[in-house]
């Protein structure tokens, strides 16, 4: 199979208007990927599927990734003449500027060919931002295996896949409002104190203990279902 660079060049020749970038992968796996723009996404996908030398007929895996806004500190070094001007020595002035790199959501597609038994070709698509422009073209019309996986990404990350035949939440219930796999998702805090908690849970539990109402008082008022807790102590395998 041709290398990713060759594939990028061939795609650029075929789709001159498209923006296609090579994203290198510095890990030991060294599987580089192609970042393609959303506008030409569907055309490129169809081309990859039907091209006789590639025949990427099998979309194995679709992954959603959240890249939140990142604060980047640029250090620009400028050389200025020494104000003292004694021996013509120069002084290096460091200027720090911080800028916010806007975050985005990303969908990664791993494509293989079952007919020719090669792969993977990795495609990446990025949304414009994380809040309102979160639309990407759906590849479900090209590869049906994307169906549930794109629904899952819509559910957990909030990417809206255009032309998906049935874009509903896959895992959470339909009334759910959040996108829980995003990095800034705050889960509902329903941790209570327990004797065997550890680490992060214990910290949350401690915080709850300080803020919550006195708990011992609740136990004193017997509710209508208070009979079962009384029997707990008689079990040898009672909850610790």
């Amino acid at each position: 199979m041709e290398t990713v660079e060759q594939l990028r060049d061939r795609l650029l020749a075929r789709f001159p208007a498209a923006k296609i970038e090579l994203v290198t992968n510095p890990s030991a796996a060294a599987e580089h990927s192609l970042l393609i723009d959303a506008a030409h996404g569907r055309d490129i996908a169809l081309f990859l599927r039907d091209d006789p030398t590639l025949r990427l007929d099998y979309c194995s895996n679709v992954t959603g990734i959240d890249w939140p806004d990142k604060e980047i500190t640029d250090i620009t070094k400028t050389t200025v003449a020494d104000p003292a001007g004694a021996s013509g020595a120069t002084k290096v002035v460091e200027q720090k500027t911080t800028r916010i790199q806007p975050g985005y959501l990303e969908a990664v597609y791993h494509l293989y060919s079952m007919a020719l038994k090669h792969g993977p070709v990795i495609l990446r698509l990025r949304t414009a931002n994380r809040s309102d422009a979160v639309t990407l073209p759906s590849f479900t019309p090209v590869w049906r295996s994307c169906d549930f996986q794109e629904r899952e990404i819509y559910d957990l990350y909030g990417i809206i896949f255009e032309c998906h035949p049935d874009l509903r939440r896959l895992l959470m219930w339909y009334e759910f409002k959040d996108h829980p796999m995003r990095k800034d998702y705050v889960e509902p805090d329903d941790y209570e104190w327990e004797p065997t908690a550890h680490g992060a849970i214990l910290e949350k539990a401690k915080a709850n203990r300080l803020t919550s109402a006195p708990i011992a008082g609740d136990a004193a008022t017997p509710g209508p279902g208070s009979a079962p807790p009384a029997t707990k102590s008689s079990n040898t395998e009672a909850k610790p």
Binding site: E192, W193, R209, G225
Partner: peptide, 21 residues
């Protein structure tokens, strides 16, 4: 019931009270 962020209610106080610290 299924709520917008969590179950509503998250527990049944008549059945369960958190263990006292």
């Amino acid at each position: 019931e299924y709520g917008a962020h969590d179950l509503e209610p998250t527990k049944n106080p008549a059945v369960w009270t958190p263990p006292a610290p």
